[in-house]
Amino acid sequence: MWFYNLIVRDLKLAFYSSTNFLFAASFLILILILLPFIIDPKVNQFIQIYTGFIWLSIALSILLTIDRVFESDYEDGNLDAIILTQKPLELIVCSKFISHWIANCIPIIVVIPISAILFGININEIINIILNVLAGSTGMVFIGSAVSSLTLGNKRSGIYKSIIVIPLYIPFIIFGANQESVLVLIGLSMFAFIFSLFTTTYSLRLYVE
């Protein structure tokens, strides 16, 4: 029950803060608006360029939003209050992962089919893209949260985060751009989950001490 309450709390915060739910998705839309100016949509194999752009903008929008996973709660002291409820740190971290994914990735997944129809991409390919994004974005959120927890309380750490996170996103982008590799993405996300859970829990524990 408290696990569910923590997720509800974070979603409420995301909802109140007015930028959170729309931010990542609007970033994607803006990049896709620019796409036809760069490349003629009638070109052969447009689908590959389109998926490439989708993954690029997902990577960048997650990078822009990962600060919010812990940073705002850290700054105003709410993170202390949450940790001091003495609930298992691993589950607190999980609730943060889930709420951040819902607040930032679900809007992206809603926007993708709409934009894909506008670009004339056929339905099978849209389903493949969505499955890939569903599987891959979770892992990217895990890794992003883990890295942002490492630099907790360190202001102006944005550039370091990007330097650490972007290389870790390469496998997701390679397999995400490939239509038939949803299973690999699931595997990668599971691996990222284990890695991120331990890293995040450990760095929160260090922060508490």
Binding site: Y16, S17, D76, G77, L84
Partner: peptide
């Protein structure tokens, strides 16, 4: 524990 940070969300 009530620390120096006021644990409030400004917005």
């Amino acid at each position: 524990f009530l620390g120096q940070k006021n644990t409030l969300k400004g917005n």
